[in-house]
């Protein structure tokens, strides 16, 4: 697939085996894997990902179990593929940002995505992550001003996560002219790829994303395919992307 693209999976969902298997299959197609650590109150996520998180927590999710799966993915994935964690501020805060970063490094996780940490609250996290070589991924959104986009894009490391819509995961994609302009501005200031997320669910939306950004992230649609038809569902979804992109 062309572009710099990411696959989102909820860590150890629906179970550890299927998670690892899907991740390894996905990394044949995708450049990076975003591993969701479930949180009780995922305010940036829609019902599909929230339900998956609650199901895992009810079954007694523990970070150590997830780390075992992450190591298996690390060992089995082709070289050069990146692993990232996606979770909420309190999961990192609870352990302490520095210990969390050290845990990431040891597990071979190169970046962390925290949708409830906006750029202006990000400094303490960045400071704690840097010595471990772990990136805190920044967001830009259609609501940001051009000045904010310049500032955020210039400081971005890992990649820059461009939220395509005003909304939460699982909502429909729509890129108005103004948003397209903002993505272009971000690309001109960023040293790292600008990757579009939220609303990418099939070949058409993936193609739209690749027209405007350096890549895309797919999440909710993958979890839905996994829920419906397990790994074969994900396989046919990813194969259909390959045909276009």
């Amino acid at each position: 697939m062309k572009g710099y693209n990411g696959l989102y999976l909820m860590g150890n969902y629906p179970g550890a085996e299927l998670f690892v298997e899907t991740a390894l299959y996905g990394l044949k197609h995708f450049d990076f894997l975003e591993i969701g650590i479930p949180f009780t109150d995922p305010v940036a996520d829609g019902p599909v990902i929230e339900r998956a998180a609650h199901e895992l927590i009810e079954k007694g999710f523990r970070m150590d179990d997830l780390l075992r799966s992450v190591r298996r993915i690390r060992d089995g994935a082709p070289a050069g593929k990146k692993l990232l964690f996606m979770t909420y501020a309190n999961i990192v805060h609870s352990r302490g940002a520095a210990p969390f970063a050290s845990l990431c490094r040891k597990a071979g996780v190169s970046g962390v995505i925290l949708p409830d940490v906006p750029f202006e609250e990000s400094a303490p996290f960045r400071r704690a992550f840097r010595p471990e070589g772990v990136d805190l991924i920044s967001f830009i959104t259609p609501e940001n001003t051009e000045e904010q986009i310049r500032k955020i894009a210039t400081a971005a490391s890992g990649f820059l996560y461009c939220i395509s819509i005003r909304g939460i995961t699982g909502n429909a994609l729509s890129l108005d002219a103004q948003t397209q302009k903002k993505i272009a501005l971000a690309r001109s200031h960023s040293r790292v790829p600008v990757v579009l997320g939220f609303g990418i669910r099939d070949r058409a939306t993936a193609a739209t994303a690749l027209k405007h950004a350096d890549g895309f992230i797919m999440g909710t649609a993958v979890i839905e395919a996994l829920n419906r038809k397990k790994l074969p569902g994900v396989r046919s979804l990813l194969r259909s992307l390959e045909e276009t992109a």
């Binding site: 305010v43 940036a44 409830d116 609250e121 959104t141 609501e143 001003t145």
Partner: peptide, 21 residues
Amino acid sequence: NKGYFGPYGGRFIPETLINAL
């Protein structure tokens, strides 16, 4: 001016909401 009472407070919300705040 950042919304902190000592170490407490702040604005831990999605980037989309920052300008509204």
